[in-house]
Design a protein around this nucleic acid. Structure first.
Lengths: 339, 339
DNA sequence: CCGGGTGTGAAAAACGTTTCACACCCGGTC
DNA sequence: GACCGGGTGTGAAACGTTTTTCACACCCGG
């Protein structure tokens, strides 16, 4: 029935409508215990009638507090990062903060551009999935004193919180499962050595094999971690292992297809474990046993640590949270033998 | 070398450092033509020395203008929506706006919650990928006069801009390609009839077949649009068509696998076209010819129309932009015969 | 040398909120 | 009966900008 209001109602309008002072309205909204139930009720009615919504810019001006937190990541299109974003968005929503999506797209200068933007916006904190491990690039935020949390990468210099998943443990449980299911000759199909995740997962695999007498471990490195390269590797294998751990589901899916082409049966002849529990794990003829990472938790935890740092300020302890991955059992491995 | 500044510099500090008035500093920053080059230079030096960054909240308070635009979508984890987000983020970045990620997660009440949040934040505009076609749910934003653009769905009531892809055209080019490549007995493997995209794509398929004498069209509806259901359908097919158009790449990938199981060769015996150019299109033994949608453009265009509406205000014309999909040729179809 | 026009910079108000300090009223206590 | 104190509410300043209005100095022509 009302026309579109030319301008939204201000606190002053509410005060006038309720017949109280501006400060009383503010008190009702921010410190209800300081005001009589009767007055508060009157004010609340006026608020509702005028559809009054406080102006956060003005409030922030006075309080010095804003409600924007930044999320900087290389590529939302990558499902891993998207899952981080989802977790972060959920946590931010739950706490009444808004999440500013910053898509750095693998370009360092763009990452820096976003950092500047977040500084300008007076973001209250930033969650970063960094492009590289170089902590220097975070300087722009640091020197402004903007709290910072790293996701998917441990903070190297103890200057902030971080949330990541334990890739060593992931490699360990993957290979331990192969061993428990009867495999003895294990092959790791890995990505490039330089990638931290890859070397960690391999290290976990080594740990598992080492603690199991009679088990052997080999490794082959794929140029790129794609389905096609996985297939390629399966074709090139000369003597077959009885268990394969691919450090990525794309490789695993491709490998399974390549094995099928050769008439090798999975899991009867060769058991395969992938990593990541990506969609592709369920696309193939035999679904993949794989390592699932609690990626949403990464984003959620990052935001929550950030908010803790903001609230606690002085007595906040930087924390390096490491999440444990889990195993998803599907058709590419046999059930473990009972002990 | 400086310690972390207790508080960021204000415009007043800059004025003092440069030996000019506050308003001059503001003029240098916002209307440089109103001030002497010499003075401007002095001010700029002071700005750099103090690392001064204007407080957007304070500025917005005065100007009534903010730099936040909202992006409301069902699920960032879905690659389609993620691509919209990427396009939107890029466009927002280019224009100096920040994008607030709102992850409604298929929950209407959460979508409403985000709308309220965006109203509170005084967002300057919102891009919505709506959960349902019901325009009533957009009321909260409308009554506040917040400009609104729909992505992936045409605005039904002409009350705003929208960006979407032409699914009818998509179905048409898919099936026309099958016909051009020699197929005559076409089967559409579709999703549920109620989904607008599905019925549009089927309609496009019908158009293509109709304008081609001697061609037949059949349809089978999959309960869900997944790889598994695609395989299921391939297994259940009694008399084989020579061309299949799946309205989704998951179905297509599954179908190809199912056909392979039966010893049916793709594309020699049956040609297959998918839809979406999802990752899965390149995962299988035969890569999928598919319809590629310019999804990033959707997000980008949505943001740009929004900004136009904000700038132009009075003389802005609502626009319904429809993007044309294209065909990606791969191994699941034969090359078209020359004419 | 004076007056008018022009261009440059300054002063001050306004944006919408929070919060501190204070005023008031009431009941209870000495 | 006066004082005190707790509980409620108000006034006003402050947050950091932008923008309008205004003053002043300078230059040039008469």
């Amino acid at each position: 029935m009302d026309a579109v209001p030319a301008r939204p109602a201000r606190i002053q309008d509410v005060a006038a409508a309720a017949g109280v002072s501006v400060s009383t309205v503010s008190n009702v909204l921010n410190r209800p215990e300081r005001v009589t139930a009767r007055t508060a009720e009157r004010v609340r009615i006026a608020v509702a009638a005028l559809d009054y919504v406080p102006h956060p810019g003005a409030a922030g001006l006075r309080t010095g507090h804003s409600f924007a937190i930044g999320l900087v990541l290389p590529d939302v299109t990558n499902s891993f990062y998207a899952r981080i974003a989802r977790g972060a968005a959920d946590a931010a929503y739950d706490h009444g903060y808004s999440l500013v999506l910053c898509h750095s797209g693998d370009a360092p200068e763009r990452e820096q551009g976003y950092f500047s933007m977040l500084v300008e916006q007076r973001a209250v904190g930033v969650v970063v999935v960094p492009l590289s491990a170089d902590p220097g690039r975070l300087a722009r935020l640091r020197e402004r004193g903007i709290p910072l949390v790293l996701a998917d990468r441990a903070m190297t210099d103890r200057e902030g919180c971080s949330a990541s998943v334990d890739d060593i443990a992931g490699g360990r449980i993957a290979v331990r499962h192969l061993l428990d299911s009867g495999a003895r000759d294990i092959l790791v199909v890995n990505g490039e050595r330089g990638i931290r995740q890859c070397s960690d997962r391999y290290q976990g695999a080594r740990q598992a094999v080492r603690s199991h007498r009679g088990a052997r471990l080999g490794q082959v490195v794929a140029e790129r971690m794609t389905v096609a390269y996985g297939t390629e590797i399966a074709r090139g294998l000369t003597d077959l292992p009885d268990g394969v751990f691919c450090t990525n589901d794309f490789l695993a899916a491709g490998l399974c297809r390549g094995l099928a082409e050769r008439g090798v049966r999975v899991p009867e002849d060769v058991q395969v474990v992938g990593y990541g529990d990506l969609d592709v794990a369920t696309f193939g003829a035999t679904t993949l046993t794989t390592v699932r990472q609690p990626v949403e938790d990464l984003g959620r935890a990052a935001v929550e640590m950030l908010l803790d740092e903001i609230d606690a300020r002085a007595d906040h302890l930087h924390e390096t949270r490491v999440f444990a991955p889990g195993l998803v059992l599907r058709d590419s491995t046999r059930p473990p033998a009972d002990h």
